[in-house]
């Protein structure tokens, strides 16, 4: 398996190899930095039955952690999913949901 080394390893360069003026060559490389472990006590859980697919949680997420996926469910053609690797657990999605389909649940050890 050709697994890519993490960016922090790849960028461990000597001062001669360091890019000029700290230029970064990989757009959006922060995806590799998992901010999910910032969450301390709660995380959002979306109830697919209650959700009306208004995407208000998606537009208000500061961490781009609510994703629109082309997953058909009943009459809906799209669904929303939470990216727990990057969600910081601020709870804006749960507060702004018009139908209260998002609940902040306790963090547990068995789910990533």
């Amino acid at each position: 398996m050709n697994q890519k080394e993490p960016l922090s390893k790849r960028m461990k360069l000597s001062w001669r190899e360091m890019p000029f003026a700290g230029i970064m060559f990989e757009p959006g490389s922060s995806v590799e930095y998992k901010t999910g472990d910032w969450r301390i006590e709660r995380k959002p859980q979306i109830d697919g039955e209650k959700c009306i697919r208004c995407f208000i949680c998606w537009i208000f997420c500061p961490d781009v952690s609510i994703k629109r996926v082309p997953k058909p469910y009943k009459k809906h053609i799209e669904s929303v999913e939470v990216d727990y690797y990057h969600c910081k657990g601020c709870g804006i999605c749960a507060a702004e949901c018009p139908v209260n389909a998002i609940e902040m649940i306790e963090e547990s050890t068995d789910v990533p």
């Binding site: 757009p27 959006g28 490389s29 922060s30 995806v31 590799e32 930095y33 998992k34 901010t35 910032w38 969450r39 697919r53 208004c54 995407f55 208000i56 998606w58 537009i59 208000f60 997420c61 500061p62 961490d63 781009v64 952690s65 629109r68 799209e78 990216d83 690797y85 990057h86 910081k88 657990g89 601020c90 709870g91 804006i92």
Partner: peptide
């Protein structure tokens, strides 16, 4: 919202605080 592009020009994994307002403003 349904017609907005799902392409994210602003990636997750940045180190702004949880519930950061400026982050939402940049993304929008």
């Amino acid at each position: 919202l349904k017609n907005l592009s799902t392409e994210e020009l602003y990636a997750p994994g940045h180190r702004l605080c949880a519930g950061c307002g400026p982050s939402i403003s940049i993304r929008m």
